[in-house]
Structure formats: structure tokens, C-alpha cells
Amino acid sequence: MRLNRPTQEELRENFATLLESVITGGGIRSESGLDMEVEEALWSIARAYPEVPAELVAAAYRAFAGQLDGSNAGARRAALEREFEALKDARRNRP
């Protein structure tokens, strides 16, 4: 069990390892430190195997870049805030 978050270098190594795995017909291991967006992009590649389109690989790289720059987390946070606001609005408008 890990007590701290993986470093960016560890994340890069994990991404490279898992990308190679799914491109060659393997799977994804848990506890890689990669976020949901990256894992979903990797699963898309795994499902497409053996004919993996370059677009899926590019999407995985974009998702990983989003994890590194924080934009994936920002988008998740914004979506949650929208959901909370919708719940609050629904509660306020309840008869």
C-alpha cells in the first residue's frame, strides 16, 4: 500500500508501461496512480485491440497530459459543482 502520491516521473513510467500493455493486447493494473480519464482512454485501446486506431492512442496521450496539468481534475470538480448546484436548485424548488 502506498502512503503518498506517485511522482510525475512515476506517473510517466506507469502510463508508458500501461500504454504498451494495452497496445499489445494486455490489460491495465490497478493502483497505477493514473486518473479515471486516462484509465478510460487506455481501456478504449484495450477494447480496440488488435486494430488500435492512432486516434485512440492520441486520446490517451491527451488524457494523460490533462492529468499532469490538472485539467482533468478541474473538469471533474466543475462537473461536481454543477451537480451540487442542480441538487440545491431542485431542493429549493420543491413544493
Rank of each mutant, 00 (worst) to 15 (best):
A16S: 15
T17Q: 08
T17W: 07
T17Y: 09
T17H: 05
L18A: 02
L18E: 11
L19R: 11
L19D: 06
L19P: 06
E20C: 09
S21K: 00
S21Q: 00
S21E: 05
S21V: 01
S21I: 02
V22I: 02
V22E: 02
V22S: 01
I23S: 11
I23W: 08
I23E: 15
T24S: 13
T24Q: 11
G25I: 05
G25P: 04
G25L: 02
G26Q: 04
G26L: 06
G26D: 06
G27Q: 07
G27H: 04
G27I: 11
I28R: 07
R29A: 10
S30T: 13
S30P: 13
S30F: 10
E31H: 14
E31V: 03
E31M: 10
E31R: 12
S32F: 03
S32P: 07
S32I: 02
G33E: 05
G33Y: 01
L34I: 04
L34W: 06
L34H: 03
L34C: 06
D35K: 02
M36S: 14
M36E: 15
M36D: 15
E37R: 08
E37D: 13
E37M: 11
V38S: 00
E39I: 12
E40N: 10
L42E: 00
L42I: 00
L42Y: 00
L42N: 00
W43R: 14
W43V: 13
S44K: 10
I45K: 01
A46L: 08
A46G: 10
R47L: 11
R47E: 09
R47I: 06
R47V: 09
A48S: 14
A48F: 11
A48C: 11
A48N: 08
Y49A: 12
Y49E: 06
Y49H: 15
Y49C: 07
P50M: 08
P50D: 06
E51Y: 15
V52Y: 03
V52G: 04
P53H: 02
P53G: 02
A54E: 14
L56G: 01
L56A: 06
L56S: 03
L56R: 09
V57F: 07
V57M: 08
V57P: 05
A58D: 14
A59V: 04
A59I: 02
Y61K: 15
Y61T: 12
R62L: 12
R62P: 01
R62A: 12
A63Q: 03
A63I: 05
A63M: 06
F64W: 09
F64Q: 04
F64A: 04
A65P: 12
A65E: 15
G66A: 11
G66V: 06
G66E: 03
Q67V: 01
Q67Y: 04
Q67C: 05
L68M: 15
L68A: 07
L68I: 13
D69W: 07
D69C: 05
G70L: 14
G70F: 13
S71W: 09
S71Y: 12
